[in-house]
Amino acid sequence: MEIAQLKDQAKKIRQDIIKMLGAAGSGHPGGSLSATDLMTALFFNILRQQPQAPRWPGRDRFILSKGHCAPVLYACLAELGYFPLEQLLTLRKLGSCLQGHPSCQDLAGVEVSTGSLGMGLSVATGIALGAKLDQSDVRVYCLVGDGELQEGQIWEAAMSAGHYRLDNLCCIVDNNDLQIDGRIKDVMNVYPIVDKFKAFGWQTIEIEGHDFKQILEAYATAAKTKEKPTAIIARTVKGKGVSFMEDREEWHGKAPNKELTAQALKELE
């Protein structure tokens, strides 16, 4: 897609996110909206996948380590035709394949179940290792939150990916600077993020996470890089696109009511 089309697509995804959360009555808008542009570029321009054959062995893999942002993943999958768009409105309801946090046993397109933070990057690293053993050109992408980086397992994974020089692995950090209890540096300072990944042998790229040109360039650089995993540290705005949610910690894990859903959708027209 051209950048103009990506922008349109991202807008649709944001609308989907708001609609599904409004219908669910609970869930996590903030981190879903901050990651929307990164996810749209990845799913519509980068990942080699076959929505009609979700288990196609040659597919690039995506792991949503920050599983609470399931809505943005579900919206991308639905917009790509993995399942009907109407199904988005079943989010978090009894019997739905759209669980509150992604469940691979319930939904094709989810590689591994997540929801407990800090676990996804290890799995992504393992897949990247397996792909190397198979001499396959499969690439692995993993989206993590900046608060999530406080989990020790993230750095154990970072150490191993650096150690094995997994250039087929790309970790995207949604650096919206907020977690549940407040600003990252006030709760538990995990900065400097870039230096930490560097220290573990990663290539790092810092970008504006809502600028498609920078996003696409970063993915391209990651794909070209040899002998090192890449971490893209993307500065983002939590709740991006909905004025009353932007950069507000209270919109981390709360669904908009009917009125605010309508207001948000109006802003996203």
Binding site: G27, S103, S113
Partner: peptide, 8 residues
């Protein structure tokens, strides 16, 4: 714990 699902 409800809608968060099995992980929680």
């Amino acid at each position: 714990t409800g809608p968060d699902g099995a992980s929680h």
